[in-house]
Design a protein around this nucleic acid. Structure first.
Length: 294
RNA sequence: GCCGAGGUAGCUCAGUGGUAGAGCACUGCUCUGAAAAAGCAGUGGUCGAAGGUCCGAUUCCUUUCCUCGGCA
């Protein structure tokens, strides 16, 4: 059976370092699972591995999309599965590494997302409705989905309506079957909140040094609107706000740190639901787990 | 020293004679092609201190301490 190793953890937990070391030791190659690192030109702000840090280990799913387009889980799943197969045929072990829980789940659970491509014009129209109106509409068109949906979340409502309106059929129920194609080991990096806080702070200072990150975002703005840049969140959102004069430099720094920690919490909440994850503190513990697994 | 403004949740502030709210922070949670996104819920205050009036004061009065402006 084909083996697959997942290395996950909250932002700033040290996934890159650990995964490169492990990949070297166990003849592995890395498949990134990061919703921002897929974009070309988002390097400093997304904490993308540098060529040097890769230390010769091939990395997939980096720079596979243009920031002008919107990437999605469905695309991720397809590309990542392809990369995984390729790695396995080369008799190497794929290491899926990242912090985007939804992307990871698309591999480990093999979730089948409904085959309905986003229709941005339709979404724009739908978004003009209030959530109450959207929910009422969904209740009529797809009462079953309406039962389980988050009634106050416009994104979810828009997507559900999009599926129903485009296909004329109800949203298929989610079959959460484990991916049977692989034998999977999921390793999570555990770090205390205070340590993550420190690391996030130091990382931010480093990224701000020499204006590296600000320059990167100014460059991105040449082809992207501020609005679009703000959609990317965290460093991209607040540096964009700073460059527009909406907030001060200090406010920008504070905001990035606060929201990064909030992001950590959201990631932890997501990972908590997956009890396959084996939590480790360091390289040694991870190495032990993999030795047993192989 | 005098005059004025203010002291209410971790922060910024609203408010009322019948023991208090908001936003943000904080904590927990959700997640069907935007997921660093988008949502939901919850905790939290002896209302600066001490007296007084009142059935009752955070709200009115007095004193006091502190902060910020202006004048000396």
């Amino acid at each position: 059976m084909n083996k697959l190793i997942v290395i996950l953890g909250p932002t700033s937990s040290g996934k890159t370092d650990l995964s490169v070391k492990l990949a070297k030791k166990f003849k592995g190659e890395v498949v990134s699972a990061d919703s921002r690192q897929v974009y070309k030109g988002m390097d400093v702000g997304s904490g993308k591995v540098t060529k040097k840090e890769m230390a010769g280990i091939p990395h997939y799913l980096l720079d596979v999309a243009s920031t002008r387009q919107r990437f999605s889980v469905a695309q991720y799943q397809k590309l990542a599965m392809k990369a995984i197969k390729k790695i396995q045929t080369n008799n190497k072990i794929p290491f899926v590494v990242g912090g985007t829980g939804f992307y990871i789940q698309s591999i480990t659970d093999g979730v089948v997302v409904p085959e309905v491509k986003p229709d941005w014009r339709l979404r724009e129209k739908l978004e003009k409705m209030t959530v109450v109106e959207m929910f009422e509409k969904l209740k009529k068109l797809d009462p079953k989905r309406a039962e389980s949906i988050d009634q106050k979340n416009p994104r979810r409502l828009v997507r559900a309506l999009e599926i129903v309106l485009k296909t004329g059929k109800a949203v298929p129920s989610l079959g959460k079957n484990q991916n049977k194609k692989f034998e999977i080991l999921e390793i999570g990096i555990i770090k205390s909140r205070t340590e993550l806080k420190n690391r996030i702070h130091l990382r931010l200072v480093k990224r701000l040094k020499n204006n590296l990150m600000v320059k990167e975002i100014e460059k991105l703005h040449k082809i992207l609107s501020w609005k679009r840049l703000e959609e990317f969140g965290l460093e991209y959102r607040f540096v964009a706000q700073y460059l527009q004069g909406k907030i001060t430099y200090q406010e920008m720094m504070d905001k990035i740190e606060i929201e990064s920690i909030q992001y950590v919490k959201r990631q932890e909440t997501w990972f908590k639901r997956d009890n396959r994850i084996k939590w480790v503190k360091n390289y040694i513990e991870a190495e032990k787990l993999i030795k047993k697994f192989i």
